[in-house]
Simulated scan of single mutants.
Amino acid sequence: MYLKYLYLISIGICSTAGLYRILNLTKQLKTVALLCVYTLLFEISVFLFKQEFGYQGNTLPQYNFFILVEFMFYAYFFKQIIKNVYLLKTINLFLFMFPVLWYIFSFYCFNILQWSSYAFVFGGTCIIFFSLIYCYEKLTSNETTSLLNEGEFWIAIGLILCYTCVVPYMGMFHYLTINYEQLAVKLKKLNLITNIIMYLLFAYAFLCKTIKTAKFSL
């Protein structure tokens, strides 16, 4: 349970950092900051219903709708920062097709009351791919700016670290919970840890310019 609290705290830190710097963030970072605030409100609402109000019902439909919003926001984020023309067309195609595929996966391949693992695996894999392409562009660029102060770069790193671990687990969620329940519980902890790391990296991404300014003013 303590990992769940740490997870909520990490999103809280990330959201606070994003709101604190919202007026000074680039348009693309504002996109992620707003998503983090939405994520915090969503996770707190689910947590309170379970812990404070004793709600024992199925929360998977809420999470199924959440991944639709989440992956659309991340794709839009990369659409603003990736320069490769062909990949931009791919992202535009993703933004058009993912809601359609999400609907098919969630209502036809699965029931909306079940975890839509196909939608998550597809969306998460695409986000990892977009993140890797952006990092490659950044690392091979002739620009002389320090990556330590590039918030977008740390967003991409956070997404790579998190979804590389989470996508395989959530893709096998149904199989693991039915056949290897204890393993599923252990992997869920890894899932929370990688999410905590991701949101802390997001917080750094929002604050890195401030940290730089404070450092040089000393």
Rank of each mutant, 00 (worst) to 15 (best):
S15N: 08
L201N: 01
C135K: 02
T125V: 10
N84R: 06
I197R: 01
F42C: 04
T59G: 00
C14D: 14
K189L: 04
S217N: 05
I193A: 11
W102L: 11
N142T: 11
I178L: 13
K138A: 12
G124H: 07
Y199L: 07
H174P: 01
Y163D: 10
G151A: 10
N191A: 00
Q182N: 14
F49D: 11
K209L: 13
C162F: 07
F42Y: 06
N111S: 15
R21D: 08
V121D: 08
N195K: 08
F120H: 12
L60T: 10
Q62M: 10
K83P: 06
A119P: 00
F47P: 00
I22F: 15
N111I: 01
T26C: 07
L113A: 10
F122W: 07
K188L: 10
E143M: 05
L207T: 06
F78N: 03
A119R: 03
P61H: 00
E152F: 02
E70N: 11
F73H: 02
Q28R: 01
L29K: 05
A156G: 08
T31F: 07
I133R: 01
Q51K: 11
E70Q: 14
C36Y: 03
F94L: 08
L148V: 02
L201I: 02
Q80R: 04
N64D: 10
V46A: 12
C208V: 12
K30D: 05
Y108N: 06
N195F: 14
N84I: 04
L148A: 14
E43R: 05
L132P: 05
M97T: 09
T39V: 07
I112Y: 10
G158R: 04
F129Q: 00
Y2M: 11
S217D: 06
K186E: 09
T210E: 14
I193F: 11
T90P: 01
L29P: 14
E181C: 09
T16Y: 15
R21E: 14
L40M: 13
F129V: 09
L23N: 13
A75N: 00
Q28V: 00
F105C: 12
K212H: 13
K4I: 15
N92K: 09
K27F: 04
Y76V: 00
V166G: 03
T16I: 14
K212R: 10
L161K: 01
E181Q: 15
F153G: 05
L101Y: 13
L218Y: 10
I178N: 12
N58L: 01
